[in-house]
Design a binder for these strands. Structure first.
Lengths: 196, 196
DNA sequence: GCCCGAATATAACGACTGTCATAGCCCATC
DNA sequence: GATGGGCTATGACAGTCGTTATATTCGGGC
């Protein structure tokens, strides 16, 4: 089979994404990871023979893809609706974990790559960010935003939401995300009005 | 003396801040830290008897204070000047480290606190964010921004810059920070125009 | 000169890390 | 019912972790 035994494998990847979003990449051990996913340690090396780097990269791709899927769907109802879904998604993760979990893509981005190399997980993080930005920029353009400004606006949205998530965790308060949400909504509404 | 032997101690704290900004908190070992600061391992426990947590907290306070000092000074010339200095500061750190270093305050914010406890380093990170926001909000108000909107604007600035730094590291490109800089400048200019 | 406390050096502690090798299980196919 | 391969279980490896204890060196006050 091409996909030998999905359930266990996917559980490991999803568990890795969750764990990385809490502790960071370097601080997540494969042993704890296996235990958290109720999978044996040996299995992680069976499914991911290239080791931790491969597993981390897949976890980032998994999380990034899941977010992109939600974003794409909700953006069909317009940029503001998409933004709200994006914010609600992260809000849920932070609140439900009692400020212990955040964004795994951000967590991977904040770790020094080995000299001269670009670890696969970091490349996956860059791709995830770019996917999100592209989706947002397209939606903005399609709804009348200045096409030249849309990419910058999309980058601002992703950056500020990611930063706000981290700030919420530090302060143990949802206030930063709420503040950012309010500013971004006003900003987007203004950018779309231009063409109304 | 109240301050027994500043040079060695301060070198350790500054080195810790730098190292945390690269690798993250959990992945920074005290041994490497001591080596990096050219201080003996025993000395770190001499100066910081409470161990790693205390050292990390002091490192975050050190970095947060240094940024706040620069911010306060440059904001005297107005919010836009302060924003530019804030951006230039981080830009320099990311570029000079070849995308390997980022913001130590953000790095500390992205790590799961022990169950039920709030580690001192995380509290220090929350304080640093609040200091920066307060400085920016005050400058915005003093230069004619809507007093009710100033805190939200300040939060957006800090969050988006922090997020952009991480995105730059992932993409190995300064583009996100440049995009965010452009959007924020336009946004602030608009917010101040209201009162001109 | 001596001496005391601050600062450094060295070694060790148990626990944990990523990774690998090996042996055993379980279930589908012939 | 035997055979095989995907999966699991177990244990080991060399190395590092945070932390502590002990021994040594150093610099300035009597």
């Amino acid at each position: 089979m091409v996909k030998p035994s999905a359930p266990s494998r996917e559980r490991i990847v999803a568990g890795a994404a969750d764990m990385i979003s809490r502790r960071g990449l370097n601080a997540t051990s494969i042993r704890e990871l296996a235990k958290h996913a109720k999978a044996p340690l040996g299995s992680t090396y069976h499914y991911f023979p290239e080791g931790k780097g491969q597993l981390a990269a897949e976890a980032v791709r998994y999380a990034g893809g899941a977010v992109a899927r939600i974003l794409r769907k909700e953006l069909e109802a317009g940029p503001v609706a998409g933004l709200r879904a994006f914010l609600a998604l992260w809000r849920g993760i932070v609140v439900e974990s009692d400020f212990r979990a955040g964004c795994p893509v951000l967590a991977v981005s904040v770790e020094e790559p080995a000299a001269g190399e670009v670890p696969p997980a970091l490349a996956a993080a860059a791709e995830a960010f770019e996917d999100w930005e592209r989706l947002l920029a397209e939606a903005l353009r399609e709804h009348g935003a200045d096409p030249e400004r849309a990419p910058g606006l999309a980058a601002l949205i992703v950056a500020s939401v990611e930063g706000a998530i981290a700030m919420c965790r530090a302060k143990r308060s949802m206030r930063p995300l709420d503040q950012v949400a309010q500013q971004l909504e006003a900003l987007i509404a203004g950018a779309l009005d231009r063409a109304a």
